[in-house]
Design a protein around this nucleic acid. Structure first.
Lengths: 129, 129
DNA sequence: GGAGATTTTGACAATCATTTTCATTCTGCA
DNA sequence: TGCAGAATGAAAATGATTGTCAAAATCTCC
């Protein structure tokens, strides 16, 4: 029975950017879903373990999740204002990471690469602030 | 009076890799330093704000700090086993991040790039396990 | 040198995301 | 129907980090 997990996955799919477990929980409850916070956490973890969603940490240390379109290795360009996320590819970076690691005698190299910025929608209307 | 802050900075300098606030606190107390956990946190934040130490988040969401030799922008190659850290430079990555961001209309681009691996010391002696 | 203002310190409480616990509910199955 | 095992979720526990506030250290002007 994975009804709840699917519901969590669906909620994530409807979001543009990365969302925290608390966000997902709040949104689901808002739409009338009967689900507990614990279950949301568990579903998110299962989804992440299964590679169906991507996870990253905010500056505040909160885990945020996203149902990405691409199921292969990729990185993210995230708007620090609205959270809008673009999935990007960076073969040059992959190679760079491998090279740097090898040069220093490191093996089993992995890397984390995320790009943050302010998207056009958020920077265009120079609101008061 | 920045005695405590200097003490914290010194403790960090004596470490090879990234250390958490709790680590630093424990080590200082171990060496007989009279300092409180709150002060260690404050010193670490001040040091990080001033750019004297680098900060990053572990997978568990804990903040870890390091007194890096280079005071210019750089990245880290971290041994996932022993924590040994090498400061690395990646001009190609900097350019890539800028390009990717611009292509999608993002401005004020920043990025996080960290490389993890197993260093030669840790992978060489194929111990039991 | 000294009184009062200001900053720093640190023990303790509070916060908050996340995890654990555990009793209840649900599911499939005979 | 009745049971075993998985799923659920409310509430408590955890643990890093932050806030509070009174005491101690330091500075400032006289």
């Amino acid at each position: 029975m994975t009804t709840r997990r699917d519901a969590v996955h669906d909620t994530l799919r409807r979001s543009e950017g990365f969302r925290s477990a608390q966000d997902v929980y709040a949104e689901m409850r808002l739409h009338g879903a009967k689900i507990g916070l614990t279950t949301v956490y568990r579903a998110l973890q299962a989804l992440a373990d299964g590679g169906q969603v991507d996870v990253l940490r905010t500056d505040e240390g909160e885990s945020v999740y996203r149902a990405c379109a691409s199921d292969t290795h990729h990185h993210h360009l995230v708007c620090r204002r609205c959270g809008r996320t673009v999935e990007v590819d960076g073969p040059a970076v992959e190679r760079w990471a491998e090279t740097v690691g090898s040069e220093h005698g490191f093996t089993e190299i992995t890397h984390t690469v995320e790009v943050f910025g302010t998207c056009s929608s958020c920077s265009a209307p120079a609101r008061t602030g």
